[in-house]
Design a protein around this nucleic acid. Structure first.
Lengths: 184, 184
DNA sequence: AATTAAACGGGATGGTCGTCCCGATTCTAT
DNA sequence: ATAGAATCGGGACGACCATCCCGTTTAATT
């Protein structure tokens, strides 16, 4: 065990994390680390001390968001009917993807291999969603011959659509197309 | 008008173009120009003389493929029923995307702005497809309240799916989901 | 065969970015 | 208040890559 961080170090770490989250969400993984340091008002050394590599920084940001999503999936699973839970989470993921370019980049594999890192169940978004899909299929709300790969493909499309030109009505329409297509 | 290229220059140009097509298709836009030169067995100077920038090289490769696709759309339009023509072209685009990472990168906007360059009708893949969509909607095969953005989103998903793990049966299944969803 | 202009190769150049390092600074415990 | 250690800032370094340049080679023409 290491001693606690010094007060200023804690402040800086938190600030870097916050700025990194905003920046990755807005501009994706391609933003330079120097730029994040600049926006956070710290030197690049400070960033790289707290987060030895860019991947580590991104992972710290990403896992936070993924944890929230897994929690959301759990809530939906116990509060809603299987049909509502599954498609509700679908919509939540579209939302998350639309407002978080870093997440999309990671999903698209443009950068780091975040999938391997997400073994722990508390970060396993796709695992949680898979459970919702299972329940929806057992309840007869979704055709039985689909799998997560299909569903992920449809999600990818929606996210791209939403990023290109956010439009609530278009989103609803696309979701309704997908709901219809996935029904038995 | 300039005089014709010297014989060796013509050979080299053709060879570079061929190697670039293969390489971009297999590995996407991120492959270095030096690497393409190396594989073609020429110096980097030779590549950059024929194609002043990487974008120019990629565009030369890409437009070739796009022209083929537009021709294909035309054939489908006159030979098939509107329903078959539209979904047949959908399948052709999935196929093209699955075997051509460069095309996908370009569509995803990861690189150059190829859309602006594709004003000429002979390269306007989306325009040609849009005509097929129109016809399919008029014939009642596709619900009337969708547009190219929806359809493009669904395509994006299929292409990603196919690139991740090519599987003819999965492709069929996903296409059938989408067909069902798009019906009125 | 000799001439000359076109084309070639690949090293040089300039720019970007991630990571590391070190002298200067600031916090904390006494 | 002061020593000592933790932390900071931002420049240095190295890797990578697109583009340009120039001495050398080769094709076309007579």
């Amino acid at each position: 065990m290491s001693r606690p961080l010094r007060a200023d170090a804690q402040r800086n770490r938190a600030r870097v994390l916050e700025v990194a989250a905003e920046t990755f969400a807005a501009e994706g993984l391609s933003v330079p680390v120097h730029e994040i340091a600049r926006r956070a008002g710290v030197g690049t050394g400070t960033v790289s001390r707290h987060f030895p590599t860019k991947e580590a920084l991104f992972q710290a940001v990403l896992f936070d968001r993924m944890e929230q999503l897994v929690r959301r999936a759990g809530e939906l699973a116990e509060r809603e009917e299987p049909d509502e839970a599954f498609f509700g989470f679908f919509a939540a993921l579209v939302e998350a993807g639309a407002t978080n370019k870093g997440l999309v980049d990671a999903l698209a594999g443009a950068g780091f291999d975040f999938v391997a890192a997400a073994q722990e169940s508390r970060y396993d978004v796709m695992g949680a969603w898979s459970a919702l899909l299972d329940a929806a299929q057992r309840s007869g709300a979704v055709r039985a011959d689909t799998d997560m790969a299909d569903v992920k493909a449809l999600l990818t499309g929606c996210v791209d659509r939403e990023r290109a030109a956010p439009d609530p009505r278009a989103r609803e329409r696309l979701l309704s197309i997908i709901r219809t297509g996935l029904r038995p």
